[in-house]
Computed example of a mutant assay.
Amino acid sequence: MNDRHEQWQAAERLALTLTEGGLQRMAARTLAVFLFTDAETVTMGEIADRLGVSAGSVSGSVKSLLSVGLIERLPAPGSRREHYRLRDDAWATLFTSQNTVTQLMLAAAETGIATTTADDPAHRRLTQMRDFYQFLLKEIPTLLQRWQERQQPLR
């Protein structure tokens, strides 16, 4: 599939699938740009041009993708625009403590636990929420190490 038109159709189908999976539409389309671009970095303006939308509508999507660790901001000496790229370890980062959303979930659970008593059903649910995220963050490094070992022959 060398035809750029076919690639962008595939990108839009991917974005639609991601949207059906719960990602906001603009964030899904923005992520598709990062996955399908042949440029090393992109700016919000370039994403907006590619998607045929305003730069302002891309801003929230970029912020969202930054917060979960899928993309990163890069220095661009001589440019007044911010440059972004899909992280090399994007999918692994999505499940680590670098994911701002995971940290927010943990903090929310802790805050809720602190405001409830041990006999309150909310306390039990919030404790389970906190314990799940703590367990996940403890177990993920081993899983990611196995993933990286698996990727070594591919590099």
Rank of each mutant, 00 (worst) to 15 (best):
A55H: 06
Q151L: 10
E110I: 08
T43Y: 00
D119V: 15
G52Q: 06
A11V: 14
T93R: 08
G52M: 09
A28F: 00
A39K: 04
G56W: 09
G22S: 01
Q145K: 02
R50Y: 10
N99A: 09
D131M: 06
V68R: 01
L65I: 08
A114P: 11
F135W: 12
R25S: 15
G56C: 05
H83N: 11
T43P: 02
S61M: 12
L154C: 11
T41H: 08
G60A: 12
A48P: 02
T37E: 04
T100S: 13
T116H: 04
R29F: 01
S79L: 15
R87N: 10
L126Q: 12
S59I: 07
G60I: 06
P121E: 15
Q134V: 12
L74V: 11
A109D: 14
L106K: 07
S59M: 07
A118D: 12
L65N: 00
Q98T: 08
T142G: 13
S59F: 07
I47S: 00
G21R: 05
I71A: 14
P75I: 11
N99D: 10
T127W: 08
E40N: 14
H5L: 04
E110Q: 11
T43I: 08
A28G: 03
T96Y: 13
T96C: 11
D119F: 05
I71M: 00
D131W: 00
E6F: 10
T102N: 11
R125W: 01
P121Q: 13
E20R: 03
L66W: 03
I140D: 08
A122W: 02
A118I: 15
A15S: 15
Q103A: 12
A108L: 15
P121C: 09
Q24N: 10
E40K: 09
G78L: 01
T41K: 04
T30N: 14
E46L: 02
E72N: 03
T43Q: 04
G112H: 07
S54Q: 06
T17V: 06
S67V: 14
E12K: 10
L143S: 10
T17Q: 15
T19M: 08
L126K: 10
R85V: 04
L74S: 14
S54Y: 06
V53N: 05
A11S: 00
V101Y: 04
V42C: 09
E110R: 08
A11D: 10
N99F: 09
V62G: 01
A32V: 12
E82F: 09
W91F: 15
V68N: 08
T37F: 01
Q145H: 05
F95K: 05
Q148S: 04
R4C: 08
R81T: 02
V53I: 13
G112C: 14
S54T: 03
N99R: 01
N2E: 08
E82A: 14
G112T: 11
Q98F: 02
H123Q: 07
R125S: 09
V53Y: 02
G56I: 02
L14T: 12
R81W: 06
L137F: 07
R85P: 01
E20L: 06
T117M: 11
L143F: 09
